[in-house]
Design a binder for these strands. Sequence first.
DNA 1: TCACTTACGAGACCTCTTTCCATAAGTTTC
DNA 2: GAAACTTATGGAAAGAGGTCTCGTAAGTGA
Lengths: 365, 365
Amino acid sequence: MTDLRPGDASLVRKVNTQVTLRALRREGVATLTQLGRITGLSRQTVEAVLDELGERGWVREVPPDGGVMGRPARRFGFRADAGHVVGVDVSGDRVVVTLADLNGEVVACERVPVAAGAPAPERLDVARRACLACVDGAGVARTRVWALAAGTSGIVDRSGRVSLSLTLPGWTGVDLAGIAGRWFGCTALAANDANLAALAEHWRGSAQHASDVVYILAGHRLGAGILIGGRLHPGRSGAAGEIGTLRQVGWEEAATSLVKEGSAEEVFAGAVAGDRAALRAVDRYAENLAIGASALVLAVDPDLLVIGGAYSQAGDVLLAPLRRHLAELCLSGPEVVTSTFGDDGVALGAVRLALDRVERDVLGL
Amino acid sequence: MTDLRPGDASLVRKVNTQVTLRALRREGVATLTQLGRITGLSRQTVEAVLDELGERGWVREVPPDGGVMGRPARRFGFRADAGHVVGVDVSGDRVVVTLADLNGEVVACERVPVAAGAPAPERLDVARRACLACVDGAGVARTRVWALAAGTSGIVDRSGRVSLSLTLPGWTGVDLAGIAGRWFGCTALAANDANLAALAEHWRGSAQHASDVVYILAGHRLGAGILIGGRLHPGRSGAAGEIGTLRQVGWEEAATSLVKEGSAEEVFAGAVAGDRAALRAVDRYAENLAIGASALVLAVDPDLLVIGGAYSQAGDVLLAPLRRHLAELCLSGPEVVTSTFGDDGVALGAVRLALDRVERDVLGL
DNA sequence: TCACTTACGAGACCTCTTTCCATAAGTTTC
DNA sequence: GAAACTTATGGAAAGAGGTCTCGTAAGTGA
């Protein structure tokens, strides 16, 4: 249950501050009267709220807009650059850092390769340097980073510790959130990469209008992320969606079955060109994929199934057989689409996660 | 996102009414001063709120409690009998009706057998009569039933229509919520029986302290219900957890494998007695069960797995092998327990669902 | 009967919101 | 260039809620 706290008059101010701030963020720039109309509050109240927000540095007055009739109205804008958040994707062979302002607009991006076999301390150091370089390069003061979120492959528990990683050496047991928190001295979060990719699709990608989403990361390895009610569902131990370990679903074979015919890219290219062996290989892959996907789909019954990861670039060559096999397994399956962001979604989803935290903690709720 | 409405002073009153009402419901009977301490509100405010609630009929003043020192305090109690809710379980061979007051205390219960082959209209009529008889028998005015919820096997969509039933004749397509709403002229809901059983366990049974729960109904047929964050997760089409159709998980064989050796009860009894053939049969059943369960567990990663349904009465004879097989399939599975209510949980969960609705709509939020 | 304890009730004061009205600062028209 | 019109601003007053304080009421125990 939501534990409800009693409210005095200041609660009303809190709520109205929220309402006003949200409206202003949507509008970008607005006058007092406009905000009053939008929020349903009186102009006076909006003014008082905005004064307070101005003092706190959230809001800035911008020059009035000439040209219209009547006395020019004071105009206010949300200071999206009052703070920033960092999203990091620490994957097998690279680190991707995305810096965004409070509106979620991406300000800078940094990609740094890292050796697949790099031990954990080295990988962490690469990530740290990349984050600092990204922030410094964008001319953002390090103290202006209010939150950071990191995504990585493997199972990440609620506290942001990597509790199991099969692919990155020495990665199991790394307290990713704890360590990353010290980079900027801000709150830090960590989550599974597929989960974050799902979040990114829900935010700005293919899954914007879906509430419950299953995201399948189809690449050299297979992973899955789940959104329930538009929010991350990590599960008790952060392992929700990690269905790969179940032998019956055959996700372990899936990847190997594909590369038997050559590199994955070659196989998909061949399938596009109409090569029958390649088509068969893709079909087999899709079938294996569908078994695991259907387990997730039947369990969660999502609005949408998003296929991401490197292989999703193959598009309909993969999707068509996947849809077919899925339809056989699930009586009434969800819509299936490819991801908008592919691998870049992880860092973007991390940004969203960090923003969620900032909006909850700093902007209050 | 939650759409936030601006608040004036009356918002504060609404919130404080909520807080007070909740506290009073927890306490049962309390004085103004006690409520003030609990809620953090001033005595004055509590008094004003209670006056208002008294006028609306939610709250009643009860005689003061003598014996303690000082001036006797006025005492107030929540009027749990101001309204009632009905929970119905329409299953293959019987209808169970549970009538509860606003505290969720069960006031009356009615069990009526119904022929397994009964067509839908007859089944509905039996359910209707049972509901009316239960309410009338308890001396509760029919207009005092504020909400009704019905649980049934099969897939029930968001609107409360049975979109697929494989076991009840003519049941597919029945608008259960719509029809049941006319019985008392109140809001009516319908949901899958396993989902409601899960809700009951979370409310008052084995799953009270778990937030994410997978409930498996193990009986003549197999079904599953899922709770996320303590709330029902029906999924897009109401089919969340309906993993039985997936051939790989082998839930279809599970049931048949058991009864090959005789009736299920005999087999479990034999296993308890140490009969080797029976033990093997139970082990095979547990193994099949574990495959489907692990798919759900890996997908959702719940805090708790509850085994309900008729077979759960076998207790450790079933649970021990189930835990063993599950541990093989899921690296770090959740705790596994048997249900508290068994089959009775469906009607009780329906009560909880109806109460949730009443609390949201009538008591406001 | 007196002291002690606990609850009640009225009044003062604070916060936040809304409504109303006079005033300011532009544009358009004559 | 002045008058009329439009739109925004700023201050005063009123109302709804909530808290705090203090005197009073209504019990118990000696």
